[in-house]
Design a binder for these strands. Structure first.
Ligand code: ZN
Length: 622
DNA sequence: CATGCCGGGAG
DNA sequence: CTCCCGGCATG
């Protein structure tokens, strides 16, 4: 089955690249120019093209040629290895020359410019003279510039079934834990149905092995873990699927858990490089004044986002952790970690983009379009920052399968402020709509082993007031995930630095005062929110992500896996103390449902969604 | 109860 | 296949 999948996937890739927006060095001009893949050829090696690709080295097995049609109509054949773009080579593989037209994001806004100076021995930065009015010049890392204009990405997950789940749920802003598994209940039926042992237990010692059909477990396990996806197979597919991973998540041998786990502090701590540290520091300084910058960010977003289909609002400027800094932390230990956290958070913003573009999970439906799913962080990076826009037009531009179509933004008909809880764990911007769920998330995802008291958990999340846009009631529940980086910014913006855990009183739902960001008037806030909590039509899964359903799925998972985040609106829920009191052993077992919660069902692995054995954390629990 | 997920079944 | 879900087993 694997081969089949892979095979199919490969094929998909080939044809899947059609229409993709890429860039390649045009012979006639000697410059990289944006082009569209217009034809796919077979393997070949006699192709011209720039000398780029050297660096790409072994990462790729690009020996195929593709016909690229440049925007000016001309076209030519290029080896994949000479093509820059998502799924192809990254910016670092280019051989830029001065004068090259590039695009980069400056303050949330994409600007074009010409390369004024190439990275030299001294710095690896590229000097770019912006085409902008005052010919300002800036420096950027090669990987931070693009050769093609970015587009808005209207990636989003559709999430239909919340409707059914919410069954009649009316208002978003309404409250309550909302979702509840439908009904289905029934006394007992004397039929003793044997049940396979859960994967997780099977592996570790188990005392609950039922005698009857002791092999069943094996069988089910096989079905769940062995054949379909998993590791063995995906390991490799994964490897060649993520050629751009700039840094690996660590050594964990789990392919499934490319999920931003970062369970151990040490790990990620090391990941932080001086550069990001600097960023963090900067942000720390500005932190109190965060309002300013944040507000700017918002307004900017707003303005540079021309009414209808704003061009893009990408931000390559890593927005450092804005809120981590002002945390009143209890005790030295916390103080320390809090600090670290903020730093890492900032770092996370940067890395997140990369991760976003690289992680994938769920071995299961992988194998498919391997190549195509490689999103070049450099090219896309900020592009997918737009979950925000609704794109009911699943297909407007046949030419941009990959670059997501720009969707048109619509005025929300109603905005509502809702309180969300965001995980503050480094690099995790997971949002939950209830205190309980966020705690659960923290417990299950970040403190799997350690046993924390509920109050401890309070320090790992922030209350965020956000605007929920909802054209449709139930809809609000099904927020598609938003690009982490983007989302975080928004959140940061909306969230006032004033949220201090100190004011939190465990379980005191009402006690805590909601924070309303002072920096923006409701209009701003709502605008901001568009970008992060946009909704789509209920079941109109009209997304425009990947073309093949397979790829799309992969994309979704990959997306969610790369950042267990969710945007949900709804309100506080009832207590029901978090998942404490769970045989600890049980608590260690991670399952999508536990980790993401019912309200973020879209983030569950497919298996879980289908009510099948979870595969995402399968081996992790083992 | 809440979870996890097997077995079936529809599309 | 993919996607759903009834319903049973468990904690
Ligand atoms: Zn799962």
């Amino acid at each position: 089955m694997s081969s089949g999948k892979r095979g199919a996937g490969g094929g998909g890739k080939r044809s899947g690249v059609m229409g993709m927006r890429v860039a390649a060095k045009k012979e006639s001009t000697g410059w990289y120019e944006a082009a569209t893949v217009s034809e796919v050829g077979g393997a070949d090696t006699s192709m011209p093209a720039g000398e780029a690709g050297e660096m790409a080295s072994s990462i790729m097995r690009h020996s195929h040629k593709l016909r690229l049609t440049f925007d000016d109509g001309s076209s030519g054949w290029y080896l994949e290895r000479h093509i820059i773009g998502p799924g192809f080579q990254s910016m670092t593989s280019t051989s830029l020359t001065t004068g090259q037209l590039v695009y980069c994001t400056v303050g949330h806004k994409e600007m074009s410019g010409k390369v004024a100076a190439l990275p030299s021995a001294g710095s690896e930065l590229l000097q770019i003279t912006l085409d902008d009015d005052n010919g300002q010049s800036i420096s950027r890392k090669v990987e931070d510039v693009r050769l093609i204009k970015s587009r808005k990405s209207s990636r989003q997950i559709a999430d239909k079934d919340y409707l059914s789940l919410a069954s009649g749920k009316s208002d978003v802003v309404q409250d309550a834990e909302t979702i509840k598994e439908p009904p289905a209940t029934k006394p007992l039926a004397a039929t003793s149905r044997k049940r396979a042992m859960p994967l997780d237990i099977v592996t570790c010692g188990s005392e609950r092995v039922k005698s009857s059909h002791a092999f069943k477990p094996a069988k089910s396990k096989a079905t769940a873990a062995l054949p379909r996806s998993p590791k063995s197979l995906d390991r490799e597919s994964l490897d060649d699927e993520l050629p751009y991973i700039p840094m690996d998540d660590g050594e964990s041998e789990d392919s499934d858990s490319l999920v931003p786990e970062d369970e151990d502090e040490e790990e990620s701590g090391e990941l932080m490089d001086e550069c990001s540290a600097a960023l963090v520091l900067m942000s720390l300084h500005a932190s109190p004044a965060m309002r300013g910058p944040a507000a700017d960010g918002l307004t900017m977003r707003k303005t540079c986002d021309p009414h209808k289909d704003a061009g893009f609002f990408s931000s390559s400027i890593p927005t450092p952790g804005l809120y981590g800094s002002s945390w009143p932390v209890p005790g030295g230990k916390m103080a320390e970690s809090g600090r670290r956290r903020s730093a890492r958070q900032a770092y996370g913003n940067t890395m997140r983009e990369w991760r976003l573009a690289s992680s994938s999970d769920e071995g299961i439906e992988m194998g498919s379009t391997s190549g195509s799913s490689q999103l070049d962080p450099c090219m896309l990076d900020h592009d997918y920052s737009l979950g925000t826009v609704s794109s009911e037009s699943t297909q407007d531009s046949p030419m941009e399968p990959y670059t997501f179509q720009r969707a048109r933004k619509q005025r929300p008909s109603n905005c509502n402020m809702v309180t969300m809880f965001q995980c503050t764990w480094p690099e995790c911007y997971h949002m939950e709509n209830s205190r309980n769920t966020i705690k659960r998330h923290i417990e299950n995802v970040h403190f799997t082993s350690a046993v924390l008291r509920s109050e401890d958990l309070d320090f790992y999340y922030n209350e965020v007031e956000t605007v929920a846009y909802s054209g449709d009631p139930c809809d609000s529940l099904s927020t598609p995930s938003t690009p982490p980086s983007e989302e975080k910014e928004m959140i940061d913006a909306v969230m006032d630095s004033s949220s201090s855990p100190a004011t939190i009183d465990r379980h005191g739902y009402g006690t805590r005062h909601r924070q309303r960001s002072t920096m923006s008037c409701s209009s701003d806030a709502s605008t901001a929110n568009f970008s992060r909590s946009f909704k789509y039509a209920p079941s109109s899964s009209g997304i425009t992500i990947p073309r093949s359903s397979k790829l799309r799925r992969h994309y979704n998972e990959w997306q969610s896996a790369s950042a267990p985040q969710a945007d949900k609106y709804s309100d506080l829920v009832s207590p029901s103390g978090s998942s404490s009191h769970l045989s600890k052993k049980m608590r260690d077992i991670k399952k999508c449902r536990k980790v993401y919660g019912m309200e973020n069902r879209e983030q569950w692995c497919t298996q879980c969604k289908w009510k099948k054995a979870c595969t995402r954390f399968a081996h992790e629990n083992a």
